[in-house]
């Protein structure tokens, strides 16, 4: 008899499950949070270099003009904005706002919509 019972959840089972919109806004909040955290060293390095001297500042300014650098800045800024809005939604939920099923769905939709609009706006501003 097979003693190792199956049933634990892994990525393969997760893709077969349904993903309500509230879970999508939640996983995006988590993913953006992790990526933002990983981006911290790069920004610390950049700000350190830009503050060290005039030539360092010019160097960073030059780097940020590049297309790849622009894309990375856009991604990170968009993620930061989404992460903050989703976090604010959690604060509202802590205050009892948007805790019903309808409220949760509406809140998630608004958060994702706001994230997309802000990302588009940032794109226009950066390019």
């Amino acid at each position: 008899m097979n003693k190792n019972r199956p049933g634990s959840v892994n990525l393969a089972t997760m893709v077969k499950l349904s993903w309500p919109i509230t879970s999508l806004s939640s996983i995006l909040h988590r993913v953006t949070g992790v990526l933002l955290f990983l981006a911290i060293p790069f920004f610390l390095w950049a700000i350190e270099l830009s503050l060290s001297s005039q030539s360092g500042f010019n160097q960073i300014q030059q780097v940020l003009q590049g297309d790849v650098a622009k894309f990375i800045s856009w991604t990170i800024l968009s993620m930061l904005c989404y992460h903050m809005i989703a976090g604010a939604r959690h604060l509202l939920m802590d205050a009892g706002i948007g805790e019903s099923l309808e409220g949760g769905i509406l809140g998630s939709k608004l958060v994702i919509l706001a994230g997309i609009l802000i990302a588009a706006g940032l794109g226009v501003w950066i390019w």
């Binding site: 309500p20 509230t22 939640s26 959690h90 939920m93 009892g96 805790e99 019903s100």
Partner: peptide, 25 residues
């Protein structure tokens, strides 16, 4: 984490997320 999957599936239409929120408060 307020994912609300519980509320989405409850066959009795109950809201565990809200109950958890009340306990948290």
């Amino acid at each position: 984490r307020g994912i609300m999957n519980c509320v989405s599936v409850c066959p009795k239409g109950l809201n565990p997320t809200q109950a958890i929120g009340h306990i948290r408060s």
